[in-house]
Write a protein that binds this DNA or RNA. Structure first.
Length: 343
DNA sequence: CGGCTTTGACCCGCGC
DNA sequence: GCGCGGGTCAAAGCCG
């Protein structure tokens, strides 16, 4: 039954991801691979017995394939939108935007805490229209360090806290869903709620339920302009394994964009409902980090190629995604093969 | 009964 | 120094 175990699931998406679209060669490759191995693994006996089960399996993988295709489409759309936003921002802010995070880093290093606060505030005003802006404009933080020991004992200024890793996640939810719950697999304990001045919708404060051993905090607030988007701001890093590794989480998130600040990754995630896999696109391991991040470079083929590479490698890093995709594709091809043989 | 949520009070940094 | 606003605390209530 497990076709995925029969074929090589390595999709080799790294270098030329457009092969996904140019399915000619891929099709041929997977098809021959699959049929070849299928022939070897499945002897002639019990052919008829297996037929029904095979058809059932084919239907299943076909449906899965459709789902995956949709996910890929959504992901590509999100990537395009994200890139457009980035371009818009760079065009509007040629001076500050051109420096990207590095310029802001310098500002933050040079200026006092009040400016930091202003920056943070301005970045918190950024709505879903400027998802990428958030990545660029939010305060930068140094290397993450566990602040668990600090938390109880010393009431240091918040800057100390800000030193921990900060990331922002945008989650699209049902407009009717009024709960400020972003299901990310971790367990959170709400410890406060506040209506802030710049946003009529309340902001909820969560601590990781593993606290105080785990210092991670989360703030969730609806976007001002698009009430269907929840903005979750994470502070710190979990120092324990992801609970969803043990149990599946049910998430209602359709799509989210993660922007992590400073040296920390900036990523795009796709979450399917029903505890499906999360695909993360890591956008920050760029060489442009140390070189001059000229905005025009973003339009360069190299940069686009790099983004695509990142996206592809992120996809291929996920073994379950690979397995599901391979199963779906091979199933589709087998179906197609059966049909053509009948004709 | 334990864990979680709610919510008003409190703390503290910042701007004026 | 004072007021404002964001963040946190903690008591009360709720729920399984």
């Amino acid at each position: 039954m497990e076709y995925t175990s029969l074929i090589d699931t390595s999709l080799d998406l790294n270098v030329k991801p457009l092969r996904l679209i140019d399915n000619g060669s891929l099709k041929q490759e997977v098809r021959s691979n699959f049929i070849d191995q299928l022939g070897r693994k499945m002897p002639l006996v019990k052919e008829e017995e297996n037929h029904g089960a095979l058809m059932e399996e084919l239907n299943r993988v076909s449906a899965e394939n459709q789902k995956l295709t949709q996910m890929l489409t959504v992901m590509c759309e999100n990537y395009d939108a994200l890139r457009k936003h980035l371009m818009d921002y760079m065009d509007k802010n040629p001076s500050s935007g051109g420096g990207g995070t590095d310029d802001i880093n310098n500002n933050n290093n040079n200026n006092n805490a009040s400016k930091k606060r202003k920056l943070a505030e301005s970045s918190s005003n950024i709505n879903n229209d400027t998802i990428v802006d958030a990545a660029v404009a939010t305060t930068t933080n140094g290397p993450s360090e566990s602040s668990s020991s600090d938390e109880g004992s010393c009431k240091k200024p918040r800057e100390e806290h800000i030193k921990s890793k900060i990331s922002r996640v945008y989650v699209r939810t049902e407009a009717s869903d009024t709960s400020l719950i972003v299901k990310d697999g971790y367990q959170w304990r709400k410890y406060g709620q506040k209506v802030t001045r710049d946003n009529p919708s309340p902001r909820a404060y969560f601590k990781c339920s593993f606290a105080p051993s785990c210092p991670v905090k989360k703030k969730v607030q609806r976007s001002i302009e698009d009430q269907s988007i929840l903005v979750a701001t994470y502070e710190g890093e979990h120092n324990h394994p992801h609970p969803s590794k043990m149990e599946n989480t049910s998430t209602t998130s359709k799509c989210c964009v993660t922007t992590t600040i400073g040296s920390v990754p900036c990523s795009t995630s796709l979450s399917s409902s029903g505890g499906g896999p999360t695909i993360t696109l890591d956008l920050t391991k760029q060489k442009s980090h140390e070189t001059n991040p000229n905005p025009r470079k973003l339009e360069s083929p190299e940069f686009q190629h790099f983004l695509i590479e990142q996206m592809a490698s992120s996809l291929t890093k996920d073994p379950s995604f690979k397995a599901a995709l391979a199963a779906a594709i091979s199933g589709k091809f087998l179906q197609h093969n059966n049909q053509t043989e009948k004709w």
